[in-house]
Design a protein around this nucleic acid. Structure first.
Lengths: 216, 216
DNA sequence: CTAGGAACTTAGTCTCGACTAAACTTTGAT
DNA sequence: ATCAAAGTTTAGTCGAGACTAAGTTCCTAG
């Protein structure tokens, strides 16, 4: 019942695309051809990790779901570990975790979780699934969707190191209190006050930052 | 020029077997069939990592040698890191390192080496090859070969966790000063005084412990 | 100096995970 | 309601790395 890194990558992608886990979405995410995805869907279905309705996309079974969560837990624990303990900058940890997640032993996973005090979120604000537990991701509004007023950064996308570095400069990190001053219309920027400084955040960036209400 | 984990395992095995890198020795070490080894020899030869003289075994080229040393450096650095920083017992680090060695990035390698203060030896006393540097392993006598008198443990085999655990109990760790009292003949044990205690060390164990003269 | 067994190589398969090209659904626009 | 484009699947290949079975070559004991 060993799962290869490939299988794990597919399960992770399917999980995170949720309802929209179609052949081409996965192909796009993983940079492989659609034909390869269909082939993998078959393999994964016979292993009982998902159900494949022809031409209609795919849905994880419980065991597929569990496996996906395990990998995501690995990924986010590793990100946290690399950042906190080895001091790897937050824009670099994703790529490292992408490969380490596939080879983390139970032993090391437990040891790392212990050392970190069983963190609930990684450096980008992504929640770390508990070991063998249920897990649901809380939905947030993006910075571009949130109404003007006080707010707090909850989570940022970890996919683009460039963007992360820029967010870091601005101080847009999970937990930071900000004030949204104005949502400029027609694709204009979001005006945000961060640490007393006003910044114009472009639409593209604003869509990869999730915010919530300020803690009362 | 990417090298797979398999390729790396072969290079490492060939390096550590040195002159004796024959088809069957490698097959035995890696638990694969001889035919698989011959096939891999061909691949590695066309990539310029070794020279294969039919029926005569194999010899690494400079670039093969360098690659092997890089993996061995990874392995031993990781062992040291896991032991020192994560507190993984010395009999468990080998197996973990065996998989992590293949995926350690330059970035992490450097960071870990820095954090550890650029160690020269791993927890078992194996020397850590320097980055892109020449490396030669010093030959030691085994505990079973060393003459009676004062001695010091230099290095122990990391292959058998059971044995390592037992050595740990006895206090047979690299750096430990011991006194060899008697080499019993005909496969008998070696009588050794460790931390004031006398122990009979069986031949098999004595052959996986290397010792040197006590530091004057 | 030769016979036979051990060691090695060749030949032929298999699985995994990728690919392209071609055929088939589904869907959306007219 | 049709029909083309978009999306999906099938068919056929490929390379890596493993295997078994069947030859070759080497070496050593007699």
């Amino acid at each position: 019942m060993e799962t290869s890194g490939s299988v794990q990558d597919y399960l992770k992608a399917i999980y995170s695309l949720g309802e929209g886990a179609t052949t081409s979405a996965i192909a796009n995410r993983l940079n492989v051809s659609s034909a390869s995805v269909t082939a993998m869907f078959k393999r994964l279905a016979t292993r009982g990790y998902l159900r494949h309705r022809k031409y209609q996309g795919v849905e994880l079974t419980d065991s597929g779901n569990q496996l996906a969560l395990e990998i995501i837990r690995h990924h986010r624990l590793i990100e946290m570990y690399l950042h906190k303990t080895l001091g790897i900058p937050w824009d670099e940890v994703h790529d490292e975790a992408e490969v380490l997640e596939h080879v983390l032993s139970e032993r090391l996973e437990d040891r790392i979780a212990d050392l970190l005090g069983h963190p609930t979120h990684d450096p980008h604000g992504d929640p770390i699934p508990p070991k063998n537990g249920a897990h649901k991701e809380v939905a947030h509004l993006t910075l571009g969707q949130f109404p003007a007023g006080p707010a707090r950064v909850e989570r940022v996308s970890d996919r683009d190191p460039e963007a992360l570095r820029y967010m870091g400069e601005l101080g847009l990190k999970p937990g930071t209190a900000i004030t949204i001053e104005k949502q400029a219309p027609f694709g204009g920027p979001v005006w945000v006050k961060i640490r007393g400084q006003r910044h114009a955040v472009g639409r593209e960036l604003a869509d990869s930052i999730w915010v919530g209400p300020r803690n009362k």
